[in-house]
Amino acid sequence: MQNFKALSNKDKGRYIANWMLDHAMIIIIILMAIYVQSQKPAFFKIPSLVNILSLTAVRLPMALGVAGCIILAGTDLSGGRVAGLTAFISAILLQKAGASGKFLPNLTPPNLLLVILAVMAIGAIVGLVNGFCMGKFKLHPFIVTLATQMITYGVYLTVSGSKQISSLDTSYTTSFVTKSLFKIGPTSVPMYVLLAIILTAIVWFIWNKTTFGKNMFAVGSNEEAARVSGVNVLLTIVGVFMMAGALYGYTGFVEAARLGGSTATLGLNYESDAIAAVVIGGVSFVGGTGKISGVILGVFMMQLIMSGMTFLGISGNVTYIIKGAVILVACILDMRKYMVKK
């Protein structure tokens, strides 16, 4: 707006109202945070803030993966179950030698790096199936990823027999993933925060500096234009979903270590949290737009809500209602920007 002062009062009001609506999600969340702070003064103290940041780091990789899919004007529902599967795989591979009821009794824990690469590869394979079905057979992302979500969960249940896995090797948990990097006051910042920062930097580079990243935005903005210009659209779609899958795989690896094992509910609804965070962060379902900084902000805001509700002692059941409402409001506010007004 060039000349705010030159506007009539009516237009000024409209301009301010529009600005508020464009930033409504963030305004609402900040107001909520202020409310929580007024009720529970411990909310904005160091232990709580570090906790929120750490949880943001846990959820960020999956959100980055989902964000790529949404930039393609698609979506991905398979994330949570992929993380559940890879958490299980990480856990059985890295169970303590001699733990009672060890899932793979004769296995000595292999190299950590090998396990990370393996579970990321498994996630990428699910992404490959997702991307290929979409790009090749023009299936709707919703249907494809709903199907692979079910298949992934089914594979997990079949292989695990719904067994809980615990007693993980400490070289995996306290000596690596949850190892303290440094302390802020009494609270330690775990290793997985650093890992999340590294992954985010890599994804930022891919999005903004590589031909693949630029092709991803172009395909999301106008698939036909990209095709006419000679972009390999199929490869781009497959690549984006594989990258997302690998990030889900990584999430499973971190979650098993952080939670000390794997259960059938690990990963449940992670994908919807990620989608909500990404939408709050300004990545539009219209496709073709989105920024890493937005995704980070979105995940952080989402975590702020979650932690705030925990602080207020709101029950987990009510949390679902609020999360659902947040997704709905975020999408409405987003579409508002793209609606062609007549």
């Binding site: 031909t211 630029k214 092709n215 935005f217 172009a218 999301g220 903005s221 106008n222 036909e224 234009a225 990209a226 006419v228 210009s229 000679g230 972009v231 496709g287 073709g288 737009t289």
Partner: peptide, 20 residues
């Protein structure tokens, strides 16, 4: 016009053959 409207001018011109 078949263009990626959310991208900038040069991204559109060099789409599919970005200078490296």
């Amino acid at each position: 016009l078949n263009q990626a409207l959310k991208r900038n001018v040069m991204d559109n011109i060099w789409l599919g053959r970005y200078p490296k």
